[in-house]
Simulated assay, not measured.
Amino acid sequence: MEKSDSQYVVQKHRAIKEWPEAERPREKLLRSGAEALSDGELLAIILRIGNIGRSAEDLGRELLAQCGGLPGLDRMHVEEILSFPGLGIAKAAQLKAAIEIGKRVRIQESRPHSFESSAEVAAYFGPRFESKRYECFFVLLLNGQNQLLAERIVAEGIPTQATIYVRRIMEEALKVSASSFVVVHNHPSGNPQPSSADDETTKDLKSASDVLNLVFLDHIILGKGNYYSYADHKQILNDKGQ
């Protein structure tokens, strides 16, 4: 059974290379699989070495205790990780890269072949927005059967505001010969209710898509554990009745 790091109790150890072989995180992973390791042990493998008086697992446990676990570590910027004693640029980059790989695996495994509802889109994008402190805008480009052709990040903004470039969305849709598209962005506040700026963006997107004979299926705003769909609220109408 996986050992829990829920309390993240910090214990001082000798250097990992001085531990009995059966207790070393890397050897334990090779023997029993990654799922048998605690969060601190997994971080120890990524960090590889500690510093004076602390093993790599000590560093991992202390970091988890400070940031509130792996979700908190995901939300930390590189600059914040660098402020932690014993962690330099290389270790900070390794940590962020490892977390991103895990997120991408989850996203790719959950990617549906087609999108039939706003709930499916929200479920697909939810994980990647969990740690965002600023607004990000994505566009899903679909064919006539609502199958995914491509997805593009359109804009990233400061914590309270982002600018959508309607022209870029249209250009990306034309590049892949998309028939329709869905725009998705997040509200870092956690409240998915649309702002007046969101309303204006939606109107601009609808006008531009009509000119190019593209179907603008939806504009979805993700909050914390919930979302708002313009299509579900009948605020986007097109020839398909959506």
Rank of each mutant, 00 (worst) to 15 (best):
K3T: 15
S4N: 11
S6Y: 12
S6F: 13
Q7G: 12
Q7R: 14
Q7I: 13
Y8D: 12
Y8S: 14
V9A: 13
V9D: 11
V9M: 11
V10G: 01
V10Q: 08
Q11A: 11
Q11P: 00
H13D: 11
H13R: 15
H13Y: 13
R14I: 11
E18N: 13
W19P: 07
W19S: 07
A22W: 10
A22I: 11
E23M: 11
R24P: 09
P25I: 03
R26P: 00
E27K: 13
S32H: 14
G33V: 08
A34L: 14
A36P: 04
L37H: 03
L37V: 03
S38L: 09
D39E: 15
D39H: 06
D39A: 09
D39I: 02
E41P: 05
E41F: 05
L47M: 10
R48L: 09
N51T: 12
I52N: 12
I52M: 10
G53D: 04
G53H: 07
R54K: 15
R54E: 14
S55H: 00
S55Q: 00
A56L: 04
E57K: 05
D58C: 03
L59K: 04
E62Q: 14
E62Y: 02
E62T: 08
L63D: 04
L64I: 04
A65G: 14
A65Y: 06
Q66D: 09
C67S: 09
C67N: 04
G68I: 04
G69L: 09
G69H: 08
P71K: 08
D74F: 11
D74C: 11
R75I: 01
M76F: 07
M76G: 02
H77F: 10
E79I: 10
E80N: 10
E80A: 15
L82D: 04
P85A: 07
L87R: 05
L87A: 06
G88K: 09
A90L: 14
